[in-house]
């Protein structure tokens, strides 16, 4: 990293005269940087590439030769694994269910966590730090222990898919993901909010802006990278969740999310595990779109710009 660090910085290499020693050093370090970036990425990708290749190979070949041999004759490529995944019964409906579960279960905890994190970071109230620590601490509770008490409560109060009106039948799993997702969300956001310069708040107060204005006009816009990363992860965890969904809404076709349907690709002996490679790529597609569409909020300078404005 030492050599690479100077690269692509307008202030160093670019201002040096062409072919001067500094110029050559700058160029060289640029090459080293790109080599390091590409090398690390490729090494990291080996398992992913392996899965990608495997997902296009027939089961008989997966079993008898390594995936890298897919590149040599006989070229055994097949779309069978994907066509099996795509022809899983109930796939379309469970895709819909996954969105119906994931979107509210992302929005609710992120919004509630933003409110709470703002209070933890910039308001004073008794036991503030201890409550905050307790919230972080319970992140370590294995979720399995909360299933029986929470589910009993839901059953006793009619919060079960069969007792709720259509459209709200996902309510138990929204609430559950909100409860389980809040500690991390509050922790992450409070940390970002706390790091905002206090002058911002002072000047806002002088201007007579209320709490709501400060929150919506200053705190949230300035924390967009943090919010974006939180949305990515909260969405991802819910999208990939199997256990919480199975416990709170069950696996029956009208409410089952994609994970439940895809898990059923293999039979009870685990036969058909090769289909999981195709399934992994298929279900990876949506979180990747979310990631890419939120990527553009990871830009430098949001803070600087807003302070001036």
């Amino acid at each position: 990293m030492s050599v690479a660090a100077a690269a692509d910085r307008p202030g160093t290499a670019a201002t040096a005269a062409r072919f001067s020693p500094q110029w050559i050093a700058g160029r060289l370090s640029g090459v080293v940087l790109h080599l390091a970036v590409i090398g690390l990425t490729v090494a990291w990708m080996v398992p992913t590439i392996g899965i990608l290749f495997t997902s296009f190979r027939p089961f008989t070949a997966i079993n008898s030769s390594g995936w890298w041999l897919a590149l040599s004759p006989p070229f055994q490529f097949t779309l069978d694994n994907y066509s099996k995944v795509l022809s899983t019964s109930n796939l379309g409906h469970s895709f819909f269910n996954s969105f119906m579960i994931s979107i509210p279960a992302t929005i609710i905890p992120v919004a509630i966590a933003a409110f709470a994190a703002y209070a933890f970071a910039w308001m004073k109230f008794p036991f503030r730090d201890w409550i905050f620590l307790a919230i972080v601490g319970v992140l370590a509770i294995p979720l399995q222990l909360s299933f029986v008490p929470v589910l009993s409560f839901f059953v006793a109060h009619g919060i079960t898919p069969s007792a709720l009106p259509p459209g709200l039948q996902y309510l138990p799993v929204w609430l559950a993901h909100t409860g389980y997702g809040l500690p991390f969300s509050i922790y992450l956001l409070a940390n970002f909010f706390r790091a905002l310069p206090s002058e911002l708040f002072e000047s806002a107060e002088i201007d007579g802006a209320g709490t709501l204005t400060v929150f919506f006009r200053i705190v949230l816009p300035l924390s967009v990278p943090a919010l974006a990363s939180l949305v990515i992860f909260q969405f991802l965890w819910i999208w990939n969740d199997l256990l919480v969904a199975l416990i709170y809404v069950g696996g029956q076709p009208e409410v089952a999310p994609l994970t439940v349907t895809l898990a059923n690709l293999t039979n009870s002996y685990g036969q058909g595990y090769h289909l999981l490679t195709a399934a992994a790529f298929f279900s990876m597609f949506v979180p990747l779109i979310v990631f890419l569409s939120l990527q553009r909020y990871f830009v430098r300078g949001i803070l600087a710009g807003s302070v001036k404005g």
Binding site: H93, I103, I289, V290
Partner: peptide, 25 residues
């Protein structure tokens, strides 16, 4: 309110994907 604009973008993107998903099955 920048937060809401980025929420809207996400929702629109996901909503579109949902419509596509609803075609099958």
């Amino acid at each position: 309110m920048r937060i809401s604009s980025f929420k809207v973008v996400t929702i629109v993107a996901l909503g579109a994907a949902m419509v596509l998903a609803a075609c099958g099955g």
